[in-house]
Amino acid sequence: MARYGMIIDATTCLGCNACTVACIEENQTAYWGDKVRTRVYEKEVGSYPDTDRIFQTQICVHCDDPPCVDVCPTGASHIGPGGVVLVDYEKCILCGACVEVCPYDARYFYTPQDVQKAREEYGPDNEHFVPHVDKCTLCIHRIEQGLEPACVATCVGESRIFVDWDNLTPEQEALAKKAVPLFKGSDYSNIFRGNFDPKPKIRYIIDKENAVPKKKVGVGVWLWHYLAKPLGLLSIAGILGVLGLNYIITKPQVKKIKEQLEEMKSEEKNKEE
């Protein structure tokens, strides 16, 4: 069994965002709404002349124990081949539980408006044919063809290294020793007294302080950590209750866009005939 992931060597990241653009082009993400699956932020630290620029890579870290999968009411969020955390677009009801619970800020809504826009931008054959929650798939479709994820393949600084944790090369082994899970020693572990470990498969090599982005601890994370995780069943009703609202709001739009899509498809078919 493979356990796919990445080592991100923050020390060689040049902050060029070739990865960001490669991912947008490969996965047709909703960048017009500032929504992408991965990006590199930048932070300035220190004061002149002891200044430094920190490049922070944000991406889904593909937890072995992912909170997003735990809270998904429909099974849309699931662990796919190679341990990759995926969303089944057709099962997703846009309730948003996963978006709220993700400690890595790695998910966003591909809204009905975005689907519309994607059609203009990428053509009617675009990948995002229904509204859904979108996230990094580690380009599993490329991995299955023997390719590296798009961001890794083009990373100019070779900062992103695609790995199979169960099958590291000797070179990767050396890097893996230096790599740590995101948020280690940062806010999260303090708040959760070191208990917080969803076992991410994307790990970072950091020689500079704060080389990873931080996210404020949201309600969802608390709910998941203190209710859903330990208590299981009990919390589900609560989370669904809170987030069902989201579903009710988006449902008519989802329906509309799907109908439009069907219409367009049949029109095209007619044209071809």
């Binding site: 735990d70 429909t74 669904l240 109908e259």
Partner: peptide, 15 residues
């Protein structure tokens, strides 16, 4: 269980 619950809640209503 979550999957099951979802089925009850929303299952048939989605295209």
């Amino acid at each position: 269980f979550l999957k099951g619950a979802a089925g009850v809640a929303v299952g048939a209503s989605l295209l």
